[in-house]
């Protein structure tokens, strides 16, 4: 465990914290100022991440901030575009249809599966003050 603690790049953690936080602030400003619903914000972030990923710009942010760039939903978009581009390189046109889901399969499947389990075991409760 000590080895692991020593191996952590603390500067990277700080960068992840700041970039991740800033991406959230941008969304918060959008929510408060424009009254966009959460679903629209998420769509906007994924689409932006995907386009920036396709243009090759988002990669610099990922190299710089690690999970600070991949954990926010723009990172999900980036992963989609990365998968598509890799597959297009090896498979051609078919890759445009297979690449995206392939790289994001883990996230999507986990969300569906855990969501189903959560619905099995738990009931929604009224927000208590």
């Amino acid at each position: 465990m000590n080895d692991f603690l020593n191996s952590i790049d603390y500067l990277m953690l700080l960068k992840a914290f700041i970039i991740g936080g800033v991406l959230c602030i941008l969304a918060q400003i959008l929510i408060d100022k424009t009254k966009l619903t959460p679903a629209r914000i998420l769509v906007l972030y994924v689409t932006c991440g995907c386009i920036l990923g396709g243009l090759g710009i988002y990669k610099y942010l990922v190299d710089f901030a690690g999970c600070g760039a991949t954990v926010p939903l723009t990172g999900f978009g980036y992963t989609l575009s990365k998968g598509v581009i890799d597959e297009v390189r090896s498979l051609g046109l078919l890759g445009a249809f297979t690449g995206g889901i392939k790289t994001t399969a883990a996230g999507i499947t986990a969300a569906i599966f855990f969501g189903y389990i959560a619905a099995l075991v738990s009931k929604p409760k009224m927000k208590k003050q």
């Binding site: 959460p38 679903a39 629209r40 998420l42 769509v43 994924v46 689409t47 995907c50 386009i51 990923g53 396709g54 939903l73 999900f76 978009g77 989609l80 575009s81 998968g83 598509v84 581009i85 597959e87 297009v88 051609g92 046109l93 890759g95 445009a96 249809f97 690449g99 995206g100 889901i101 999507i108 969300a111 569906i112 969501g115 189903y116």
Partner: peptide, 24 residues
């Protein structure tokens, strides 16, 4: 299940296909 998140997948995946075709 996808009433809120469905659009995210629709737009994310559709954009990625377009990105792939443009890249091609």
């Amino acid at each position: 299940m996808f009433t809120v998140a469905g659009p995210v997948l629709v737009y994310g995946i559709s954009t990625s296909v377009i990105v792939g075709i443009i890249y091609l």
